[in-house]
Simulated assay, not measured.
Amino acid sequence: MKYSTLMIATLLAAGLATTAGAQTLKKVADSNKITVAYREASVPFSYLIGSTKSVGFSVELTEAIIDDVRKKIKKPNLEVSYMPVTSQNRIPLLVNGTYDLECGSTTNNSTRGKDVAFAVNHFYTGTRLLVKKSSAIKNYADLAKKTVASTTGTTNSQVIRKYSTDKKLDMQIILGKDHDDSLLLVENDRAVAFAMDDILLFGLMANSKNPASLEVVGDALQVEPYSCMLRKDDPEFKKLVDGTISRLMKSGEFSKLYDKWFMSPIPPKGVNLNLPMSAELKANLKAASDKPAL
């Protein structure tokens, strides 16, 4: 059978509409399975200890959401599948239905909001630099004509590239496929600095081979919120996810989780990041806002 261009367009539109209209809770209930994403190197939000177990602040948020999904769809034996994602593939794999929820270290911004939805913001951070102490680099001006690392698919790689252009610093930007790769570029002297969210840099440094040789420097270029990510046009699932996070914030459980992962020793090395809650996050415990960065 031959299809006209109009017929093909109509079929494609119908397929897209079906995909976009698919509701996560129904999908999960029908299959008795939810697939959630984790990051392999986003300390202390979502990261691996050993070869398979993911842990972290965002992982515990994910588990609380899964518990509420079980109650909502009345399936106490709901199967949970955990899928590793990278900065580069996390959005397309969510959009195409490969997994259902990502709570990691993903910035909630307006550009991404065209493709995905975001829950209540659960952290605020800004781009800074991880360098070797021996490098004598203290701020962005010191990076002129030097090689700087960031991670593929992150807002930070865009921020540092724009900053270099605007300030005519002529940095050479190279990208790791995930944060561990970008850190290695600095440790192996292929880059003089790693531009990334400051909290991730502190976490990576704490668990690096030689933490005493590294430091986080530079002004924060912008403040951005982290948020759990889900598919667009699914108000029922967003209401559930927002409800879980808001409940944790109001009950005090969120603050206890924060203290566990940011103010106490964390695995695998027992390092304490000692990072008090920011003013922005304290305010959002009351506001429960999902407002994106610009």
Rank of each mutant, 00 (worst) to 15 (best):
S31R: 15
Y99G: 08
S278L: 06
I91G: 03
K114P: 07
T127E: 03
D170G: 04
K33Y: 02
G56L: 00
L285P: 03
D181F: 04
Y258S: 13
T35V: 15
T152I: 06
S182Q: 01
G218V: 00
L230I: 15
K167S: 02
S251V: 12
K26W: 04
E60C: 05
T5M: 10
N272F: 07
K282R: 12
L101A: 05
T152Y: 02
I66E: 11
Q222D: 09
A195E: 02
P92G: 04
I173V: 01
K26N: 02
S135G: 12
V55K: 02
N77S: 07
S105Y: 13
Y99K: 04
D259M: 09
V131Q: 09
L275G: 04
A14E: 14
G243D: 14
T35G: 06
L257R: 09
D178F: 01
G113A: 05
D100R: 11
A37I: 10
I91E: 01
F45V: 08
Y140M: 04
D170E: 09
Y82Q: 11
M249R: 11
I8F: 08
S255V: 15
D115F: 09
A13Q: 09
S251M: 14
K291M: 05
T10N: 05
T10Y: 07
S246G: 12
D197V: 01
S58P: 01
P225K: 02
Y82M: 10
K146L: 08
N210E: 11
P76Y: 02
A29N: 09
I173P: 00
F194S: 03
K114V: 07
K26I: 08
P267D: 12
G243W: 14
Y38K: 13
L281D: 08
L93V: 03
P76Q: 06
E187Y: 04
V192N: 03
E215W: 05
A287F: 11
V120A: 14
T244K: 11
I160D: 00
P211Q: 12
M205S: 14
K75N: 15
Q158F: 09
L6T: 10
L130W: 13
L12G: 12
E224S: 04
R90M: 12
L294P: 11
I137L: 07
V217C: 11
A37G: 15
T86N: 12
S255P: 05
V55C: 01
L257V: 06
K167H: 00
L169S: 09
S278Q: 06
L281Q: 09
A287Q: 15
L214E: 12
N32H: 14
